[in-house]
Nucleic acid binder design. Structure first.
Lengths: 222, 222, 222, 222
DNA sequence: GATGAATGAGGGTTCATTCAT
DNA sequence: AATGAATGAACCCTCATTCAT
């Protein structure tokens, strides 16, 4: 075993991250073995601790790019949403923007299957859990903005069903929708078709709450 | 101090299950310790293996009542749904039946918090995961029946958006809705209010798909 | 490797204690290895934790008999001291009792060299350190009783040098004397000779404080 | 952030020694970490090995000033003792010289608490242990000289109790007295008061051996 | 049916030390 | 002279599981 001193640390770090993704994907965080990760990375056990503080830190570093990507997509999506007129929130051009954001995330997943699956299947890990708390908080804030706008659009009507709780759930639904697409589809094209329908479904559900009491039972329209 | 031989095995089993629920709830499956479970149950390590095959088997026995209860509620709900006319699926009496089923589950949760939380927070465990696969399959089957009925109801119209995939997602949504209620509410009364709105939302979304193309953009109605 | 289930635990415990004494004596607490201890005891690593909570607990169990023996000897010695007249404290019969107690401890050491050396060379370990605190406290209490008695004996004379601090040091000296005997002698007979001289020395020093001011410089007597 | 090459090596060495004292004081030798020492010294791990051979060498360098200081004080003390008449050994001027030497050491301790405490609480470390062996050897040699002198002073009388062994113990006692003062006092003035009493005690004990057999039981004097 | 001592592999982590740069 | 990534053995400890009693 020849000593490899003075290595470029980035190489080791990259090798460890690559190996860690595989391990976490296969065994899950708890049952993953740092020893196995190091061996597969072609590195000794102690080397891991040069690049990472501990197992949790390794996990966070594995998963961080995913969180950062999601943040970027969301931010851009909300930017565009805010930039458009309030009207858009309610018509089909808004629908298209929603689908577009969803698809960006889905595509990212398809190109980074393993990390993403690690990320999405460890919602209980503190790193992921707290990220989701923050994420849903942000979706929620945007939802409230939309609701306020919708209030203005429909002429200041009171829509008592749209409480903060419901908006929170709505945010949750949006995240969940993406999970679903990610976990169930294998074909990107198919995913897009479904995404469109899902977005329509959710917007439809949302407006069912807005119109509550004025349209009466929906089936009258059919 | 020393336990007499000739115990009633059911007592041991019950003590172990009680202790196991607490342990799984607190530490999660992987980090739960059979030793701790046995100690808290006032029983020795070996005794566990009289009642249960191994750790997974213990887990399954902990979680089975929840699965059985859900099965019962679902079965009865679908029974009633099938018993009613197709019309009900679309009007507010259907909505009431949905809310009723949801609330039965939510109430069960409130009366069995610990087991339920163990069950719901171990969706990755094979026992739970495979149960959910079966559950969603069953919800799905019912969804297909509803869709067929709806087809008849709206006059044989083709509703291309309602594919098998979408129905599957719809099933998934229903399960998820219950998770959400369970994980976020503490007051049973509040939960019921939310459940009603959620059911309305989902039915609204569903009909948005059914009416697609004939009503045009929804906002026209507002 | 055949499994040895249902062992008599005492055998394992005894083997571990024996092995641990050797290890602690050889390497000191910190550098002692539980693995080595278990191996030398002919037992697997995990077996240690059936008998002992952790490394510290093992150490305490190794060292406890020594502490208990010392306690016994001290208690009996003080018992006899208290039972005799105050006069004895100052004449040679008191000297004999002191030597006797010291020799009991020294003899114990010679018959339990290894444990004792572990005990005496780990005064920094919490278990030993706190024992010594208690021990010196007890010696001290006895010393105060002696001083009070001496006050009465010499006719209520004030002896300002004998402060609480000095008594504490005197206690310390007594303990240290035993350490010295233990660590430096190899022949029991020689030890006894020295013990006698040491006891005379210390009693002499003590009385030098009592007589301070009335006898003037000691060399006048010579 | 990055340290320039071409450092003055003495600076690095000094920083490491300072950091090492703190570490050894806090954790003890075995549990001290070279990494932590280097980090706190603002230096990398490898740098340590430019200035020190290994952990033991670092320890020796930390502790050496203390040993050197003690050597100096002792040498000067003995110089003065040898320079005075034999008479002094037995009267109160000798007592004063003893107290003076003791106090010099105690004062050094108060001005260098941390290093000294490292030194005094590592008597088991080879470096310190072997130093003490040498130190006691030297005290012993001086003790023998004193005894020879005393023999002449008291008129060639044989004092069989004062064997080489006893002198060795007497040396040990003197060292131990200083430890005690150092470890138990916080006020320098108080320490001095105690030192005086201790010295009187020890001289008293010593003369109790010298006068043995001619004065009879001490209490006769009281 | 229950005991509980024992297994033995494996866990994450830290260590003093080396050496190419 | 200093860097700091890497070594690789060792650390204490916990685990689910077995089986003689």
């Amino acid at each position: 075993m020849s000593r490899k001193a003075g290595n470029v640390p980035e190489e080791t770090k990259a090798a460890l991250l690559k190996s860690a993704v595989e391990e976490f994907a296969r065994y899950g965080f708890e049952k993953s073995s740092l020893r196995r990760i190091c061996t597969r990375a072609g590195v000794t056990t102690g080397a891991l601790y040069t690049s990472f503080r501990d197992k949790d830190d390794l996990f966070e570093n594995v998963v961080r790019p995913v969180m950062e990507y999601i943040d970027t997509v969301m931010e851009e999506h909300y930017e565009r949403e805010r930039a458009s007129t309030g009207r858009q929130l309610l018509d089909s051009s808004g629908e298209e923007e929603d689908v577009r954001a969803v698809m960006e995330l889905v595509r990212y997943y398809y190109r980074n299957r393993e990390v993403c699956s690690v990320f999405f299947s460890h919602r209980d890990h503190p790193v992921v859990a707290s990220y989701f708390d923050r994420l849903i908080g942000r979706i929620n804030a945007q939802g409230e903005a939309v609701a306020a706008l919708a209030g203005r659009v429909c002429g200041g009507c009171r829509v008592p069903e749209i409480t903060a709780d419901m908006l929170h759930w709505f945010s949750h639904l949006q995240v969940d929708m993406i999970f679903y697409l990610i976990e169930h589809e294998t074909e990107e094209r198919e995913a897009e078709v479904q995404a469109k329908t899902m977005v329509r479904f959710m917007r439809g559900g949302f407006y069912a709450l807005l119109t509550r009491g004025r349209l009466g039972d929906m089936e009258k329209e059919i």
